[in-house]
Protein backbone atom coordinates (compact mmCIF):
# COMPACT_ATOMS: atom_id res chain seq x y z
CA UNK A 1 0.00 0.00 0.00
CA UNK A 2 1.38 3.37 -1.02
CA UNK A 3 0.28 6.96 -0.85
CA UNK A 4 1.28 9.67 -3.32
CA UNK A 5 0.48 13.30 -4.10
CA UNK A 6 -0.17 14.41 -7.65
CA UNK A 7 2.00 17.52 -7.80
CA UNK A 8 0.06 18.81 -10.81
CA UNK A 9 -3.13 18.89 -8.74
CA UNK A 10 -1.75 19.90 -5.32
CA UNK A 11 -2.21 23.62 -4.62
CA UNK A 12 -0.69 23.74 -1.15
CA UNK A 13 -3.96 23.77 0.79
CA UNK A 14 -1.95 22.33 3.66
CA UNK A 15 -4.47 19.86 5.03
CA UNK A 16 -2.43 16.65 4.60
CA UNK A 17 0.65 17.64 6.56
CA UNK A 18 -1.51 19.08 9.35
CA UNK A 19 -3.66 15.96 9.67
CA UNK A 20 -0.91 13.38 9.13
CA UNK A 21 2.50 14.91 9.79
CA UNK A 22 4.02 11.43 10.06
CA UNK A 23 3.12 10.74 6.43
CA UNK A 24 3.24 14.17 4.76
CA UNK A 25 5.54 17.17 4.89
CA UNK A 26 5.70 20.41 2.90
CA UNK A 27 8.25 21.75 0.44
CA UNK A 28 9.69 25.26 0.25
CA UNK A 29 6.61 26.45 -1.67
CA UNK A 30 4.22 24.99 0.89
CA UNK A 31 3.03 22.17 -1.34
CA UNK A 32 2.45 18.77 0.20
CA UNK A 33 5.07 16.04 -0.19
CA UNK A 34 5.06 12.40 0.90
CA UNK A 35 7.73 11.48 3.45
CA UNK A 36 9.91 8.61 2.20
CA UNK A 37 8.44 6.29 -0.42
CA UNK A 38 4.89 6.54 0.91
CA UNK A 39 4.58 2.91 1.95
CA UNK A 40 1.65 2.48 4.34
CA UNK A 41 0.88 -0.14 6.95
CA UNK A 42 -2.51 -0.98 8.45
CA UNK A 43 -2.04 1.72 11.06
CA UNK A 44 -0.96 4.56 8.76
CA UNK A 45 -3.48 3.64 6.06
CA UNK A 46 -6.44 5.06 7.97
CA UNK A 47 -4.55 8.27 8.68
CA UNK A 48 -3.60 8.61 5.01
CA UNK A 49 -7.25 8.02 4.08
CA UNK A 50 -8.32 10.76 6.48
CA UNK A 51 -5.90 13.19 4.85
CA UNK A 52 -7.09 12.08 1.43
CA UNK A 53 -10.72 12.73 2.26
CA UNK A 54 -9.87 16.22 3.56
CA UNK A 55 -7.84 17.35 0.55
CA UNK A 56 -9.92 20.04 -1.17
CA UNK A 57 -8.08 19.48 -4.46
CA UNK A 58 -8.40 15.65 -4.50
CA UNK A 59 -4.63 15.46 -5.00
CA UNK A 60 -3.89 12.43 -2.77
CA UNK A 61 -3.89 8.92 -4.20
CA UNK A 62 -3.67 5.63 -2.33
CA UNK A 63 -2.67 2.43 -4.09
CA UNK A 64 -3.89 -0.59 -2.16
Amino acid sequence: MRVSIDTEICQGQGRCFSIAPSIFDFDELGNGVVIGDGTLNEETLSLARLAQSNCPEHAIFIEE
Binding site: Q11, G12, Q13, L50, S53, N54, C55, P56, E57
Partner: peptide, 14 residues
Protein backbone atom coordinates in the same frame (compact mmCIF):
# COMPACT_ATOMS: atom_id res chain seq x y z
CA UNK B 1 -13.49 14.95 10.80
CA UNK B 2 -14.33 14.98 7.08
CA UNK B 3 -14.12 18.59 6.02
CA UNK B 4 -13.02 19.19 2.46
CA UNK B 5 -13.96 22.87 2.65
CA UNK B 6 -13.14 25.53 0.07
CA UNK B 7 -12.63 28.50 2.40
CA UNK B 8 -9.30 29.33 0.77
CA UNK B 9 -10.57 28.84 -2.75
CA UNK B 10 -9.87 25.96 -5.10
CA UNK B 11 -7.38 25.53 -7.92
CA UNK B 12 -4.44 27.70 -8.88
CA UNK B 13 -5.65 30.76 -6.94
CA UNK B 14 -5.69 28.99 -3.54
Amino acid sequence: ALNRHAAFGLGIHR
